[in-house]
Design a protein around this nucleic acid. Structure first.
Lengths: 348, 348
DNA sequence: TTGTAGGCGTTATCAT
DNA sequence: ATGATAACGCCTACAA
């Protein structure tokens, strides 16, 4: 059975393409009777309805926005922060009646990401490392594009939080409690899969801008409290998982002198640190204080953390995509330190 | 600045469109020098690359698969079962390098879902109620389509579990422990937002096929153990949340005689039942046994549940979408009763 | 109310 | 290696 198009139906009925088109897309421009006959024949012929690509080409709009995320999708669908953001974004898309095209980023770098072929009206790019090729592809499309979290692209709307300030607030909380022996565990600094101790050079060379900022906030707050940053043990993870956090915890807590407090850049990691503390029979918060980030998995575990307005950011991104502003804005959303039971002054 | 197309560049260089097209899509068909000049001019002119819709039209493929889900996206991104499925599906899409177009279903019914305009090569439909208009729209597109969980559409691949068998297994577990006073709490039977007691007529009239099957399994196992189904209190929820489960728990546990066991069709609901039991000072499992479904949030709470292979289902759906089988298959994936600490024999 | 015809931007075929 | 031309399927002035 050959392909059925408007023309097929038109021929069959002895009317013109335009008439058939009207029957589908402008019902009111047609007599009811003719319209019914057209739909009838279309049905008999097995017409699949106006071709979406052709329609999109002709109409100049796609009815969808593209979403690029730095991680594998399997990971993104498991990460509480990403999910909160997705919820906000999806809700905005839903209200506008547009689809959300999630584009995979091949980590293996074998082939280019399918952004060239993405039939979309706008792009949302979330948390890409500096210089990631997909970003260039997106920008080349010259569609309205908003960036979330990182990297900042001049001329395009940006949504995120004040990372240095948030990091500083987390660290300040600890030093104000009196901690001086602080350790740090961070994931997502680099894209090369390395896990282990990171010296200051490697820390500052992080390819993820937001994490760079967050870390610099840690450092600033520590330094201004008289802590020698060079002596702060800094463990870098390549995966954001509880198990990774536990590994970092063991590494950090095995140091002499043992840190009395640990900063982490995700809640999941923080939970792993708690696991490690439990392994070692350490009491939290008496022997060890732990601070998470994002308030995603923190509540039930009683974790002190920084809360970000993930859903609001997603919703705002959606709105910006759907009606691009004249002036690209750089929107910094509020964050908040949530103090729970995982932090306390160090033992005297 | 007017729109830049292949022709614009061709004119500028005095070459033909085809040549310019080659520069982008068939680099090897062109002399290196000319190609460079073309790309150079394209860049100067601000060419956005080959138009995706036009390409899709010409090529006859979209590089994306469409996904329709019955719930709000905000809900879907919070539901553990849905997320597990998404992970599997997304991974398959990722490996194939195709995008995943998530289509919103307007609950308000104001306008048709944007499936007509979805530029995709295939559709995946998940858990739609009987007769939902979006399904008809999808089928009208005559693209490869797979259905997950419900409803079964003859002629199209179907993926899910054997719902009646799974339901029966959950219920049999309880009756074999000796329970005879069983209560049921189920969400997602109907689409009308009702919450409250459901008589057998309303139970059987559920518009969600999978839930209908699951419930019939409950009934079959109970009846064959000599339980009078008509006397089984059955509480229906419109939202799958812990709070809803708690409400159902209070309703069910307020009955005289009090049930010694409660069946629920989601883990989230089961957690709410546990909350209600705690409110009433009841010991689980001594005073009350509770069975969940899906093994999504069950482990930490020690919940007895039915585990479904959600990720496998998602992955299989992805494969089926990417290369449609000759014969539409009806694939039933295994489920498994996981017995944990929420079930025990009733008090003598 | 319906028909005509041009063009949306690209790629494939067949020349040269 | 490059050019001319014809689809791909549809929508929309405009004309009738």
């Amino acid at each position: 059975m050959a392909r059925v198009t408007l023309q097929t139906i038109a021929d069959r009925l002895g009317v013109s393409r335009a008439t058939v088109s009207y029957a589908f897309s402008r019902p009111d421009q047609l007599s009811d009777d003719l319209r019914r006959r057209i739909l009838q024949v279309a049905d008999e012929l097995g017409y699949a309805g106006p071709n979406a690509a052709a329609r999109s080409l002709r109409l100049g709009r796609a009815g969808a926005v593209g979403l690029l995320f730095s991680e594998t999708l399997a990971y993104a669908f498991a990460d509480p922060y990403a999910l909160g953001f997705f919820q906000g974004l999806a809700t905005a898309a839903e209200e506008a009646g547009v689809g959300l095209l999630i584009l995979p980023l091949p980590r293996g770098e074998k082939r280019p990401p399918p952004v060239r072929d993405a039939v979309v009206d706008a792009f949302c790019v979330v948390s890409l490392p500096d210089g990631h090729p997909a970003l260039a592809e997106v920008l080349a499309r010259r569609l309205p594009t908003v960036v979330v979290d990182e990297p900042y692209v001049p001329g395009h709307p940006f949504l995120g939080i004040d990372e240095p300030a948030a990091g500083a607030q987390a660290a300040r909380h600890l030093v104000e409690l009196g901690h001086r022996r602080v350790g740090v565990a961070m994931v997502g600094l680099h894209d090369d899969g390395r896990t282990g101790w990171a010296d200051p050079g490697r820390q500052r060379g992080a390819v993820f801008e937001a994490m760079r900022g967050r870390r610099s906030g840690y450092e600033a707050a520590c330094v201004s409290a008289g802590v020698d940053w060079a002596s702060v043990p800094f463990y870098e993870l390549s995966r954001n998982s509880r198990a990774a956090g536990r590994e970092a915890g063991h590494a950090l807590l095995g140091r002499t002198p043992r840190p009395t407090a640990i900063l982490t850049n995700t809640d999941v990691l923080a939970l792993g640190i708690l696991d490690a503390a439990a392994d070692l029979g350490l009491d939290v918060p008496l022997d060890l204080s732990v601070v998470g980030f994002s308030d995603s998995a923190a509540e039930e575990a009683g974790l002190t953390t920084i809360r970000q307005a993930k859903q609001e950011i997603g919703a705002a991104a959606g709105r910006l995509l759907l009606e691009p502003p004249d002036e690209p804005e750089r929107l910094l959303f509020p964050h908040e330190l949530i103090v729970r039971a995982s932090t306390a002054p160090p033992r005297p």
